[in-house]
């Protein structure tokens, strides 16, 4: 029953709209808007839970209690924090470069929303299945670098500038390993469509065929969404809050939300590219595909949180050296080995 819940709803709605003789374009736009609403619901609910989960997990690792006042076991803590931020004043500091300063928080939240366009949430549950899904993801993610730079430079604050410089260096450096690790997956699947990549993993997940690619991707994505050990962009104890320092109220909340959404998307991408996406392991199809997707996503998220609360922040030279002198050569070798392996496999099969 659960498997076709959302797909069935969308299909029923489409039939109903078509039977009422709406223009085809109206039907399409309406259904796409519905998909956006679904995505936003997913985003906000998960972000609300994720922030709470992160704090509770951190508390658990460090043998503290964590949030426990608002609601049972502090479950409404994030809601209370959001409301508090709503009651904070938004103002424009004197020395900032006005337009980039105002535009940055708006754009930083737009990017993760756009990323959700191509993500396969379950069987047949893709808002829009782009042919160039992987390339689209890479392209849209890299815009974030510019937005962070806008925020940091326009703030006219030394800490912001340092944070923005670091964020640009970090995101550029780790983009290469990310791209090359994705490339090896694209080679295996023979398609850039994310639903094809998921379908190619029906029998064997790519984590077993691409263990090195998985490790590279897992580490490099951690740097892309900037959490410890790669959080030197914010580095609370050194540069206050990096590019976000001059922002208050909802401006800051949007940055924060975008950060957690990027975290979510990172985990989703690891799931989709290497852990079989919504495919059920061991043929356990009694759990619907979208639930498998969420289970796997939270598994990866937990791994990342474990990393975050275990490791220390690294220095900037260590961060850059690791990307350029270790991850990049290894990922190039990985592509070569993948190519040779695929070629040999084809020769043996014929």
């Amino acid at each position: 029953m659960g498997e076709n819940l959302f797909v069935g709803m969308a299909k029923g709605l489409r039939t109903w709209l078509e039977s009422n003789h709406f223009l085809p374009i109206v039907t399409d736009v309406f259904l796409m808007l519905l998909a956006v609403v679904g995505v936003l619901g997913f985003l906000f609910l998960n972000a609300l839970f994720l922030i709470y989960y992160d704090r509770k997990f951190g508390a658990w690792v460090q043998a503290r209690l964590g949030p426990n006042r608002v609601g049972p076991r502090g479950i409404f803590q994030t809601v209370a924090d959001t409301l508090k931020l709503f009651a904070k004043e938004i103002f424009i500091p004197n020395n900032v470069d006005r337009w980039p300063y105002l535009l940055a928080p708006v754009l930083i939240f737009t990017i993760p929303v756009m990323l959700f366009l191509v993500i396969p949430f379950g069987k047949g549950m893709v808002p829009y299945d782009l042919n160039l899904g992987v390339l689209y993801l890479v392209a849209v993610t890299s815009v974030e670098t510019i937005v962070l730079w806008m925020a940091g430079w326009s703030s006219n604050n030394k800490y912001s500038l340092l944070g923005a410089m670091r964020s640009v260096a970090q995101m550029l450096s780790y983009e290469m390993p990310v791209i090359f690790a994705m490339l090896s997956v694209v080679m295996m699947a023979g398609s850039m469509k994310l639903s094809d990549i998921v379908a190619a993993q029906q029998k064997v997940w790519f984590i077993f065929l691409q263990p090195v690619g998985f490790l590279i991707y897992f580490i490099a994505v951690n740097a892309e969404f900037k959490r410890t050990p790669f959080d030197l962009v914010e580095g609370e104890s050194e540069i206050i809050s990096g590019p976000y320092t001059e922002y208050s109220g909802m401006n800051f909340a949007l940055f924060f939300l975008a950060e957690y959404t990027n975290f979510m998307i990172g985990a989703i991408m690891v799931t989709t590219l290497f852990l079989g996406g919504w495919n059920a392991p061991f043929g356990w199809t009694f759990i619907p595909s979208w639930l498998w997707f969420i289970i796997k996503m939270y598994f990866v998220i937990t791994l990342y949180m474990w990393t975050r609360w275990t490791f220390l922040r690294i220095r900037i030279d260590q961060m850059l050296n690791f990307a350029w002198k270790f991850l990049l050569p290894v990922s190039l070798v990985n592509i070569f080995v993948t190519g040779v392996g695929l070629y040999l496999y084809r020769m043996i099969r014929w």
Binding site: M32, L33, V36, V106, V113, Y128, G249, M250, N251
Partner: peptide
């Protein structure tokens, strides 16, 4: 594809502006 991307872009953009104006 362009239409779909545009809808997602506009939603994200307008939503964050609405949030900021509300605040």
């Amino acid at each position: 594809p362009k239409g779909a991307i545009l809808i997602f872009f506009l939603t994200g953009f307008l939503l964050s502006i609405i949030i900021l104006v509300l605040n």
